[in-house]
Design a binder for these strands. Structure first.
Lengths: 179, 179
DNA sequence: AAAGCTCCTTACCGATCGGTAAGTTTACCG
DNA sequence: CGGTAAACTTACCGATCGGTAAGGAGCTTT
């Protein structure tokens, strides 16, 4: 049920998703949906924590065993990919969707999850770069790259998480040699 | 007028933006808006070509003088930054917004612009990587990084385009030495 | 002055939105 | 069986959406 709602929110965005459609795709009636989640905002929040907690757990678990900054960045990607692989490749969108009503609990919560992911990446980057603004910049660029890779990956079902990770390492190999 | 509409679409997304709000912020009445742009979709298309044509022109102009793949990637970023600087830093969102109604002329047109940008980046990457899937992957990652940098830049008005470009080159310098 | 024309607004249309009241089915207990 | 409480649906609410009809203002022409 949360899974269906998450799908719809990812497809249409917050404003574009309708409770009617979500209820229909859950094969229940709208009042039932409102029985479990009392409003659209609460439903989105539920989807957000559902996806966000899982994603952050996957990333932090994956990055826990990494020591060098390089390993940490690659482990972050690996955690992201494995979460997306075993859950749904499009679900990250519920955290990184950009058009939710400002000044709501929803906006606040998404920022919270983004900050936690940012913290992981920024910590890794601060082991490589000195200037704090450079760290910020590089961390945001890396996260954006990850976002974009996931978006691309959604349309490439034949590529597995392992293959994606392997290609990523292969592409970065000539660079990583420098570190 | 196109500028105001573009702002609103970037802030709220396609579904979230209302013609009422756009008209109000243009300080005209809604029927006037419909006189010039006959529907919401047409208005969005107008914003899209308005931003898209300018952005692609800026990128292609900037990348024209670059020869090595490395220079081409950096020139793409420079073109992007200079366009964003002299127009509006948030406007790229009208091309990379992800929640527009599927199977419409709008969706088709955004894909067209994304493809043109992708072509520039992919061409540069194909000078560095051999495997075509690696090229795809790297190009999408780079574009995502650029998107994310722009999003970050919106909230850092004190950073100029020149400084951003300089920092980017500085961060990439140790890597670029390998190429 | 009256007619005509352009420009623009108020006021409305049906559809759909988020959300709910009230009633109907189902199932269980005596 | 009868009664009752939970589970669920139909049908609706006001608000807002994209989009439009109808009718002023202001200006020129005759």
């Amino acid at each position: 049920m949360l899974e269906v709602a998450t799908e719809v929110f990812c497809e249409r965005g917050y404003a574009g998703a309708s409770m009617n459609e979500i209820a229909a795709r859950c094969e229940i009636s709208k009042p039932m949906l409102y029985l479990y989640f009392e409003s659209k905002e609460k439903l989105y929040l539920a989807c957000l924590t559902f996806v966000g907690d899982g994603l952050i757990a996957a990333i932090e678990k994956s990055v826990a065993g990494a020591h060098s900054p390089t390993e940490q960045v690659l482990a972050t990607a690996a955690g992201l990919f494995s979460f997306a692989e075993q859950r749904d490749r499009a679900w990250w969108g519920v955290i990184y969707a950009e058009t939710m009503p400002a000044d709501t609990a929803v906006a606040e919560a998404t920022i919270g999850y983004r900050d936690r992911i940012y913290a992981v990446v920024a910590r890794a980057m601060s082991g490589v770069l000195d200037d704090p603004l450079d760290v910020e910049l590089a961390a945001h660029a890396l996260i954006g790259a990850g976002e974009s890779l996931l978006r691309w990956w959604v349309d490439r079902p034949e590529v597995t998480a392992a293959e994606l990770q392997q290609r990523l390492v292969g592409i970065l190999a000539p660079f990583l040699g420098r570190l």
